[in-house]
């Protein structure tokens, strides 16, 4: 099982994502934004950071990187794709996921351990969790407020496409406490908080983020 991790100029969390992939039992492959080459990977992770300095809008420029046209094509054929934080923003800008991430409602950059509830464990990235399982992983972003129109929101809720919700007080003004969503097919997942920073007790608030990376191995082995 080979999982590609894309690095854009300004990406921060590619190393941690690669480390989490290995901890989850898969092989990691580094992908470069300017290469139109997915190197035969079975799945792709778009990690967090500030790709292209968040110029224009978060993820807006990254969407047009050469590697992204291949990701969009592969996602259309069912390849599992996980976008974390800035990666989630890139997936929305690429129209692989609906909605958009906007400025946190209180304008603060948040960096804290956040409890979330996994509400959909049927995607290739979430099968290691039980439905309703609560985990604590870091949340760190300035533009993490998930917004969409009422029709899209009804669709996401009606089709069970919300994969994770914030527990407790809404940290950033996201509609319906949405922390993560998936596409209609269920192979593309976007998540605001960071499971890759919570894969062992030594370096994270918990090891509860590891499930995303063991899930992808299980999804491919099946």
């Amino acid at each position: 099982m080979r999982v590609g991790v894309i690095t854009f100029p300004g990406t921060l969390d590619d190393r941690d994502a690669a480390r989490a992939v290995v901890a989850g039992g898969s092989e990691t492959v580094s992908l470069w934004h300017a290469d139109a080459d997915l190197k035969g990977v079975d799945a792709v992770i778009l990690p967090g950071g500030f790709s292209y300095g968040d110029y224009l809008r978060c993820g807006a420029i990254s969407r047009f990187a050469p590697v992204m046209s291949l990701v969009i094509e592969a996602a259309g054929k069912g390849m599992p794709v996980l976008g974390i934080c800035n990666g989630f923003q890139v997936l929305c800008e690429s129209h692989l996921l609906p909605g958009a991430l906007t400025r946190n409602s209180d304008l603060h950059f948040l960096c804290r351990d956040q409890e979330i509830e996994i509400v959909n464990n049927t995607t290739p990235w979430t099968t290691s969790y039980k439905p309703g399982e609560k985990i604590v992983i870091p949340l760190k972003n300035g533009e993490g407020s998930f917004q969409c129109d009422d029709t899209t929101l009804a669709e996401l809720e009606g089709e069970g496409r919300v994969i994770a919700r914030y527990v407790g007080q809404n940290p950033n003004g996201s509609r319906n406490l949405i922390a993560g969503i998936t596409n209609a097919r269920g192979n593309v997942v976007g998540l605001m908080p960071h499971p890759e920073h919570a894969i062992d007790e030594l370096t994270g608030p918990s090891a509860q983020g590891l499930g995303f990376f063991t899930s992808i191995l299980n999804a491919m082995v099946k």
Binding site: T102, S105, Q147, D149, G173
Partner: peptide
């Protein structure tokens, strides 16, 4: 401009 129905925290701060 942000659509009227989208929350604008920066505008609110101003």
């Amino acid at each position: 401009m942000l659509k009227p129905e989208i929350l604008d925290p920066q505008g609110n701060a101003v």
